[in-house]
């Protein structure tokens, strides 16, 4: 009997749910006209960064390719031309490809990179009509001289130019060798939206946690 009445009341329960939701704030946005603010550590598309002087940060060490759980990165290094070096040091990333169809956006490549050459931006719009186009080559991944990431449709309605600038493309890596020159110097220059990193400390400094223990 109760079951029967319950069945009769069922549609009204449904209406109640609808009525309740109708007065709550809406989560749906009219994308692409309205863009959502993405979390600061959003794992979007990768970029290859440059130093402020325009040199590429990538040294072709293949650590990103080695750590990649999806095996989607392909890197080949080469001897740096002495007269026109591409990156500081002896070796540069000659070939750099990421297959974004395979990529799982875990960010391990970013963690593995010894020079902070590869970082992730907030870009997420890279649908393609040909599978081959999903393999991003070095030309597409490398940021422009002013640190702006390349994008296939920078003028399209989908792209927010301000968001492009949000890419954490402007970073300067310091050698982790403990060079005295870098003591007390912030490792990152203010990169749009990413903020400052604490200054490099001398290797013999006592850390806070160690102080606490003491």
């Amino acid at each position: 009997m109760a079951g029967f009445i319950g069945e009769l009341l069922g549609p009204f329960k449904g209406f109640a749910t609808v009525m309740r939701q109708a007065f709550k704030p809406r989560l749906t946005r009219s994308y692409p006209h309205e863009m959502r603010v993405k979390p600061q550590r959003f794992h979007g598309r990768h970029v290859l960064n440059r130093y402020p002087d325009g040199m590429e940060k990538c040294i072709g060490c293949e650590l990103c390719a080695g750590v990649c759980p999806a095996s989607c990165i392909y890197v080949r290094g080469q001897d740096n031309p002495v007269d026109a070096p591409v990156s500081p040091g002896e070796r540069f990333g000659f070939v750099y490809e990421i297959n974004l169809l395979r990529c799982i956006f875990c960010g391990l490549c970013v963690e593995a990179c010894p020079t902070e050459a590869i970082t992730m931006t907030q870009l997420f719009e890279f649908s393609v009509t040909d599978r081959a186009d999903a393999i991003y080559t070095k030309d597409e991944l490398l940021v422009q001289a002013d640190g702006t990431p390349n994008h296939g449709q920078p003028d399209g309605p989908l792209i927010d130019l301000a968001e492009l600038k949000l890419a954490d493309g402007w970073m300067r890596a310091t050698s982790p060798a403990g060079r005295a020159d870098f003591e007390g110097v912030p490792a990152w220059t203010p990169s749009a939206g990413v903020g400052l990193r604490p200054a490099e400390r001398g290797q013999s400094d006592v850390t806070e946690s160690e102080e606490e223990e003491a």
Binding site: E90, A177, G178, R179, A180, Q203, S204
Partner: peptide, 15 residues
């Protein structure tokens, strides 16, 4: 695990 040396390393032309 950690080095106490923070001085500049020796440099040679390489390679």
């Amino acid at each position: 695990g950690e080095s106490r040396f923070v001085e500049e390393k020796r440099h040679f032309e390489k390679p």
